[in-house]
Amino acid sequence: MGTIKAVFDYTLREHLRHKVWLGCALFGLVMVASALLASALARDERARVMLDLGLAANEAIALVSVVFLTVHLILQEVESRAVFLILTHPVKRSNYLLGRFLGTLAAVGLGMGAMGLAHWALLRLLGWPVEGSYLLAWSCSLAKIAIMGALSLFLSLALTSEAAAMSFSVFFWMLGHFSAEMRFLAQKSGNALLGAAITAFSHAAPDFAHFNYRDAWHAGVPDPGWALAAAVYALAYCGACLALAAQVFDQKEF
C-alpha cells in the first residue's frame, strides 16, 4: 500500500506540473463559446444544449488527456529509464502500474472536477434549471475515463508503439459506444457463427452504450440497480485491463 501511495503521489505531482491544467483552460473557452452559441440558437432548449455541450466537452477533453497521458505513462519512463530506479527498489511491478494509473486518473479527475464545477456554476448563474443528477452524469463520465485509461495503459504495453496504442484506444472508444448496435447487428445477422463473433467482440469492447448516463439524462432518473451494476462494471473492466497490463509488464525487461 505504501509503495502504491508513493508512486501515486509522484505521478499526480508530475501531471499537475505538466499538462492537465491546459485542458481546463481549453474547456473554459469551449464552454463560453458553447454558452454563446446555445443562447443564440437553441431557443427553448438553451439549458439542455448548454448542459449537454458542457458535459460532452468535459468528457472529450478528459478523454484526450487520459489517452495521451496513459499511453505515454510507462513508455516514457522506460524511454527515459526512470523506471530502472523505481523497479530496482522493493516495488511490485503491478503496484507500480496501479500507482501510476491511479495518479493519472486522479490528475484527470481533478481537471474534470474543476471543469464540472465551473460548468455547473455557470448553469446556476444563468438561472437555467438542471433537472437530474449532475453528479451522476459526471461520475459516469469519470468511470468511462477510468476505463479508457486502463485500456490505453494495457494497449500501450501490449503494442509498444504509442501511435498504435492511441489509435486502438480511439477505436475502442467508438466501438464501446456501438456495443448496443453490434448486439442488434448480431441478432439480425442470421448467421450463428458471425452473430457469436460480433457478440463476443461487443463484450470485449467496453460497453459505453449502456453506460452513458450523460446521453440518457433527459430520459429521467435511472434505475438504482443500473447505477450499481455500472459501478461494478467500471471497476471490473478497469481491473481486467490493469491485470492484463501487469501480466505484459511482468514479462518486460529493461
Partner: peptide, 29 residues
C-alpha cells in the same frame, strides 16, 4: 531489493520533481 542500493550509469531521475521529492519517493519505495 530493500537491501541493495543501485546507482545506474546516468541519473535516471524524474526531472519534474525536486531533489527532496525524489529522495522522499525513494525513501518510501
Amino acid at each position: 531489493l530493500a537491501r541493495i542500493g543501485y546507482a545506474p550509469e546516468a541519473a535516471y531521475l524524474n526531472r519534474s520533481l525536486t531533489g527532496r521529492e525524489n529522495l522522499r519517493l525513494f525513501a518510501a519505495l
